[in-house]
Design a protein around this nucleic acid. Structure first.
Lengths: 303, 303
DNA sequence: CTGCCCGTTGCCGAAACCGCAACGGGTCCT
DNA sequence: AGGACCCGTTGCGGTTTCGGCAACGGGCAG
């Protein structure tokens, strides 16, 4: 809304680190920006930016102010959403930060289900690793986060969490694909591996377990893209590791959980920023997601 | 600050109930106001006021918006106070709603002590009964409240509370003034009474106790001003009822607690609005006040 | 020393804001 | 029923604010 145009300028400068870059993104001139900042600093009676040769950086006062600004913007959005809710049609935007493992099935299915009931609600789905996802929450870039193995943080308010066993993934004809039931980790390591790289939580999890046993995995292929690994599995006799949520329903693929003695299950967490009041749309979507995850988990346990 | 000028207009219209009255208080013309409101309603896509013949009243959407606006204003004030605190000098405004009983000694003493250390901090002390005090907190007109017998409310966050015995107050020569120690309520009722009226919590407290015994008090004088009652006590042989905090240190006055069997002690409460983040100045003053009340209470118990 | 990118400033047109006067529609009192 | 009164609203014109353009001075790298 209009009244926080100026404050938005401040936030954008803080984001982009210089007046000129911010001006670019805001489609105004640097001169206009400079004046707005000067006005605000005059009103506050103190500078909020350090002027460096490379641009602008927030000082302590600025940090406080920008925090307040992000708060204001998010809160106004929530109020608008509540107001829209009064008139029947729910509209709004749900900003979700999620791990790569969930873009395959869970998130698209849930978004579709939600939008079938509330077509006026938009979604912004950002794929982030577990560290970046928490950061996105604190800067209000995301309302909720769905991630694997998030770092413990006092800022996180967990809405739902459950365990996901790590699974070995191979194509239907692969030697390991035969029998049902769990597979030992050492059997997997005997085959050619295609693993997620170190930017992904699964790999961290694996490395920790291997380190305790003094083994190292020598993957032939590693990638930051789970999708690439799956496609590779379809073309060659390689074994990959993924969590069940990320495995598409494809008869050409076969997955078997790693024995719990070798690799503990990973933790799936749905969370928001502690103390943050969500918009109606985001809150309801989080509810739906939590309920659905609960059902999926129960169904998986029944197998 | 500048950016919430327009929003302040909305809040003021909501307060005063009509555009013309708000315009008066804001020193602008009604036409200017009308336009601002229309702009906002256009931006929100929905009216926020009902147009009545007598003026404007908030609708449901407006209620949500005004709540948000008050929040914004209070939060910005808090941020400014934090920023000022960074540079060493504490400035800001502490808005306190208190019962009449505390304007005699406690509040003036505490304000003086605080301002001696932080002269840049201003105070706004509003005398409110226990109902109005809570209302002042919820509308952000007050940061903290110091009241007797506040109604239990989920919105209240109690920072400190203690008991205050009700005391009989008379001048030094009065027959009841003789011995030290508690006095029975029936002995008081035997004398001419000058009591707080029904707008004050002490009177409510007394009426409740009397009703249980099936007695009614027939006061000769009743008043909403504790100060008036005290001055009356000095001029005639009448007995009044007050809590110790409200009794000035005057050798011409004598007070004796009512026996606990006749009248339970009243509850003194220092509170803020639950979930509200206070400015530095208000938070520190609340700390000081709580600590001081604790000391005073301990000293009184030692007598 | 020479580009290059930075924030900043003077000047001017455009847009937002506001005051003035007048209008139309309600309520209340006579 | 009529008139006084208060209400919100609108057309018009002046003032203030905002933003774009061009130019300046200052750090920094090659």
């Amino acid at each position: 809304m209009k009244h926080l145009r100026t404050l938005g300028y401040v936030a954008e400068i803080a984001r982009s680190g210089s007046i000129r870059r911010a001006a670019e993104r805001l489609n105004i001139t640097p001169s206009a920006l400079t004046r707005q900042i000067q006005d605000i600093e005059y009103e506050l009676g103190t500078p909020i930016f350090e002027r460096l040769a490379q641009g602008m950086r927030l000082n302590a006062a600025g940090e406080l102010l920008v925090r307040h600004i992000r708060d204001q913007i998010a809160d106004l959005e929530r109020v608008r959403s509540q107001i829209a809710d009064l008139s029947g049609v729910r509209r709004g935007l749900v900003a979700l930060a999620c791990s790569q493992a969930f873009v395959t099935r869970i998130v698209p299915e849930e978004v579709e289900a939600y939008r079938a009931r509330h077509p006026q609600v938009g979604f912004l789905v950002q794929v982030r690793d577990h560290i970046q996802a928490v950061a996105a929450l604190t800067t209000f870039e995301a309302d909720i986060a769905l991630v694997l193995q998030p770092p413990p943080s006092a800022e996180l308010h967990v809405l739902y969490s459950c365990h996901q066993p790590v699974c070995a993934l191979m194509r239907a004809g692969h030697p390991l694909a035969g029998p049902e039931g769990p597979v030992r980790l050492r059997d997997c390591l005997a085959h050619t591996l295609a693993l997620p790289d170190r930017s992904l939580a699964i790999r961290h999890h694996l490395e920790q377990a291997l380190a305790r046993r003094g083994i190292t995995a020598g993957p032939v292929v590693e990638s930051s893209s789970l999708e690439l690994l799956r496609n590779l599995v379809l073309r060659e006799d390689v074994v990959s590791l993924q969590v069940p949520s990320g495995i598409p329903d494809d008869p050409r693929l076969c997955s078997r959980p790693i024995d719990g003695r070798d690799l503990a299950p990973m933790t799936l967490v749905l969370a928001q920023l502690r103390g943050r009041m969500l918009s109606v749309a985001a809150a309801k979507f989080a509810d739906q997601l939590a309920a659905s995850l609960h059902r999926r988990n129960a169904a998986a346990a029944a197998d």
